[in-house]
Every structure is written in C-alpha cells, then in structure tokens.
Design a protein around this nucleic acid. Structure first.
Length: 509
RNA sequence: GGCCCGUUGGUCAAGGGGUUAAGACGCAUCCCUUUCACGGAUGAAUCACGAGUUCGAUUCUCGUACGGGCUACCA
C-alpha cells in the first residue's frame, strides 16, 4: 500500500522565532528522503495559534531554507497543487472533520471555561497526580455534550456559546504503530487525555490539523521530533476515525538534539558561546539578537553535513558528505533512536574541512562579505582568489579569513612589538636595510627565490635565519600569524613589501 | 506523580552472543614547519548497574539507576 504511493513529505514549523538545529535537521531528513525517492518536499506553515504569531518569522524560515539549499517543492511562496500551505488560510476546512467526529461518537463538545478547567486541575490535584488531565475519569464531571442533556447542548450551540471539540479517548485500548526509527511503539489509551481538536476560536489544534492536512496533502511519510511521540496515539486514532489506517503516513520520530546539559536551547547558545539558530534572529519584543550559524561563519555545506551526521551515519567511516552524497546514502532506518549531544568543537571541524575542500570560487563571495563586514572592500578579485587559496587551510570559520588575510589588502595598524624589540639589534637593522636594497633591485619576485636570497644574505651577515624571520613576519603582517612569510611577500608585491619593512624599521629606530 | 523514549570513551559513533570493542572530534606527547595552521606518528580514555538465558554476554530477556520528552483551547 505505502510502497505504491508517491513519496511526499513535509516540514511544518510554526512561525514563532528562530529556526534551531533540530528544526533544520528535520528539514534535512525530510528533504533527503524526498529527493532520494524522487518525491516532493512540502513546507506547511502551522500558524494556528494566533497568540504566538510573530511577524517576520515566516520570511525568516524561507531565508534559512534558501541559505541551507533545502528548498521545498511546495510552500506558501513556491506554490503547489495542494494549497493553501498556511493553516490559518485553511481554517474553514477543519470544522467539518471535527463535526464528523462528534457525529460518529469519537469526539464531543466541551463548554468548560478556562476558569472551570483551572478549578478542575486544582480539585483533582493530588500527591499522586500533580497534573490532572481532562480524560475519561474526569470528563463525566465536566460541562460537555457527554454530560449535558441533548437539548441543553443544542441550546448552547445555537447561542454560539464558546466551546471546543475534544477527542473522546477510548478506555483501556492499546494503540500501536511502527515507527521507522524505533520499531513498534504502543500506548494505552486510558492514560492519554481528551485533547482539544478544535479551539474556541474555530482554529484546529495541531492534533487535528496535522492529520487533516497530511491527508489532504497526501503525505506519505511524516518525520517530526521525538517530542511528538506522546501524542502519537491521538493522531493514530484520528487517522483511524477519519481516513482509515491504510491511508496513514509512515511515522518517524527523530531523536532530540541535546545541549551541554539537556535539551538544546537558545540559552545554551548564549551560555556556551555557540549558535543554535541557522541564521541570526532578533526577538522583536526584547530586541535581543541571537547569532546564527551563517553569521558565525559557517558554510551551508558544512552546516548540512554536521547536522546529517548528528544522529545518523552510513555505517562506514565516512564523515564528510556532500548534499548529493547524502541524498544517495541517507536512510531513515539508520537514524539513531537516542538523542545526540551537539558538540560545537566538532561542528567547527566540519566547517574547517569544508573550507579546505571547497574551490576558491565556492568561497569567494562569502569571504568577500567577511572582509566587507570588517570595512575592507575588495577591488582586486585576482588577489582575493590567491589569498583565499593561500590561507583557507587555517580558517575554521569564514570569519577567520579576516584575521588570516586582511593584511594583504591593508597594512597592519598594530604591530606585536614584543615579538621583535627584545632581540632587536644593530646587526639586524643593517640586515634589513640591505634587504630593502636587494629587494628593490630584484626583478624576480617569487617566493622561492626570495627565500633563497634572504637566507644567503642571512648567512653572509652571520645571523641565523630564525632570528630574522619573525621580525620580517611582524613587518609584513603585524603579528605572529599568517601563511609562510615569503608567500606573503610574493603576493604583497615588491613595492608594498619594501614599504612595510621601511615602516617598521622606522618604528624600531 | 503518570506515560513514552533512550543509555558503547568527555562528545559523535561502528559493531550486535566468542573482536586486541572500529573511526572521528577534543585532549596530551612527538615529528614537520624557526609564526599559526595543515600533514604525519604515538598515547590516555568506553560497553550504567544487578539478575537471568547461555559453554560464553557489550550484544538477548527482565529489573534498577540515570538521562530526556510529554502531561495547555502551544506547536
């Protein structure tokens, strides 16, 4: 049955704020699964909670998907034959299903006010049961179409009394299903509460909406976070009541991504200094900016890669995967059932690997942006390409290019004088003065020859090259960093190299 | 509290009755490099615990402990 169905998967976020690691990984797994099976990847916006609506959050999600390269085939902005793709725009659709459930005895109207619900929770609260649920044991004592007379219910409904529709969970039945990651999972219906399906404002809750929309959108496989596992029996039952279990998608509940202690949160990021969102997000209320992986200097290739292997591997020793390889090798069955702790050090290692691996062309624009953010505007693209090639192996984050390469475009503003001054002497002063003359005469400006000449001169002056190399480096870059010093000199060119030597010499006088 | 899910080095993990229990990150030492990286070599470090099944359990079963999630007219 399922095998003949076209693969259609969906990612269904609520537009409430930053898109965190777990969310992006869910997108990734959906995307990979869809592409691997020549299926469709749908983005559906779950904006049924009007009180949590955050302006800009939806656009933000699209930006993140665009940056990661995991773009949907169907969405509110990409269009598609199963729209609308925003649940708020589908509002009118849900009521009929809820009513149908009531008609068939699988759900009921509940008129309890928020105050009454609160009172119920107070009254039923005991040591053994600190959080009483609206379930089969209490529904008989509440104001709903199960307890009220039929005429009373009709009257309340006719008067447009605020009410919700709740599922009537059966007593003591076992609901089980096969999760693609965890195998058979089962629940006793008695311990699940009568979840609200349709809210008083006419909007469906997640529980109703996910089932109705997955059906209407012909979703074949539903991947979501493990936090949804406890409410799975509600969804299974709804499928059974509404559309039949044969039509139900196959479920996979993805393990959670953990932080240093417990579930990964935005707080962890702030506390330990690593990003948790794909891209920077500014909270409109507090104006608080949370830096994203993109802004931190991650490559989308690396970001996807590290997320893919956080909870999945192909059984070999391979760790670096391109998107194409992931599409080919990914399998939901090999996803771990246990949660994985996010390790920022390893995340940086992945980025480093990708920076080393990528051709200059794949880095150019992003590096240019990094320089531009630092106030360095690149005009010489050819030089930029050479600089990237020269320094990329020592950059873990794209932002490292600023430190590693800025001096190629701009003379150092600061010099690490402590590295030269203590050992500076007249002999060295003389050496560099002569070096300037030799350089000025040189018409063969390539690193290898520069180095040979430098060392011959050092020998003639009876100074160890090591004594001279560090000062030379400081002259050119300002500090103890950067690639091989003669490579730097070559790229800098004769004029600039000489100018920088002269400059520091003057400072040392 | 209840329910559900999970548990191989500090972290990500392979393996799934008999193995010297892979590999990666990180860490340490050394080599290379008279900066920092890269690269290379070496090292420290693991099957949560207790029963059971078995000739033999890291692997299977059951308990316990621990971790996590859920327990809203939020998703």
């Amino acid at each position: 049955m399922h095998t003949t169905k076209k693969v259609r998967v969906r990612f269904a976020p609520s537009p409430t704020g930053g898109l965190h690691l777990g969310g992006v990984r869910t997108v990734l797994y959906n995307y990979l699964f869809a592409k691997q099976h020549q299926g469709d990847f749908i983005l559906r916006i779950e904006d049924t909670d009007q009180s949590r609506y955050v302006p800009g959050a939806e656009e933000y999600i699209f930006s993140c998907l665009k940056w990661t390269g995991l773009e949907p085939d169907e969405s509110p902005i990409h269009g598609g034959a199963y729209g609308p793709y925003r649940q708020s725009e589908r509002k009118a659709l849900y009521r009929q299903y809820a009513d149908q459930l009531v008609k068939n005895g699988y759900a009921y109207y509940a008129f309890d006010s928020p105050g009454e619900l609160e009172k119920m929770r107070e009254d039923f609260k005991t040591e053994q049961n600190p959080a009483p649920q609206y379930d089969h044991t209490v529904r008989s004592q509440m104001r709903n179409s199960l307890t009220l007379a039929e005429s009373e219910v009709k009257k309340l409904l006719d008067e447009n009394t605020r009410h919700v529709i709740r599922i009537k969970m059966p007593e003591n039945e076992t609901v089980s299903f096969t999760d693609m990651i965890r195998g058979e999972v089962s629940f006793n219906t008695s311990v699940v509460d009568d979840k609200v399906l349709l809210k008083a404002d006419g909007m469906p809750t997640y529980h109703l909406a996910v089932v109705v929309d997955d059906h209407l959108m012909e979703i074949s496989h539903a991947f979501r976070g493990e936090e949804w596992l406890p409410s799975a029996p509600v969804h299974i039952l709804l499928w059974k009541y509404l559309f039949g279990l044969d039509a139900m998608p196959q479920w996979a509940h993805l393990p959670l991504i953990l932080g240093p202690n417990g579930k990964l949160s935005k707080r962890d990021g702030a506390k330990y200094g690593f990003p948790v969102f794909a891209m920077s997000w500014t909270d409109a209320k507090t104006n608080e900016l949370t830096e994203g992986f993109k802004e931190k200097g991650f490559l989308p290739e690396a970001f996807i890669n590290l997320l893919a292997v956080l909870g999945w591997n192909d059984g070999t020793e391979q760790e670096i995967f391109s998107k194409a390889e992931l599409i080919e090798k990914f399998s939901i069955e090999r996803v771990h059932s246990g949660g994985a702790r996010f390790d920022y050090e390893k995340a940086k290692w992945f980025n480093h690997e990708w920076i080393k691996r990528l051709e200059v062309a794949g880095l150019r624009e992003q590096v240019k942006q990094v320089f531009s953010d630092k106030g360095i505007h690149i005009t010489d693209e050819q030089l930029l390409d050479k600089v990237i090639a020269l320094v990329k192996e020592r950059c873990h984050l794209l932002t490292d290019f600023a430190q590693q390469g800025a001096f190629f475009f701009k003379a150092p503003e600061q010099y690490d004088m402590n590295a030269v001054k203590p050992k500076w002497n007249e002999a060295k002063q003389v050496f560099f003065a002569e070096l300037i003359r030799n350089f000025e005469l040189s018409n063969n400006w390539i690193a290898h020859d520069l180095e040979t000449g430098f060392k011959e001169m050092a020998a003639a002056h009876r100074i160890k090259p090591g004594e001279l190399l560090l000062p030379f480096r400081i002259m050119l870059v300002g500090g103890k960093f950067g690639p091989h010093v003669f490579d730097i000199a070559e790229l800098l060119g004769k004029e600039e190299t000489v100018a920088r030597i002269k400059h520091l010499l003057a400072l040392l006088q």
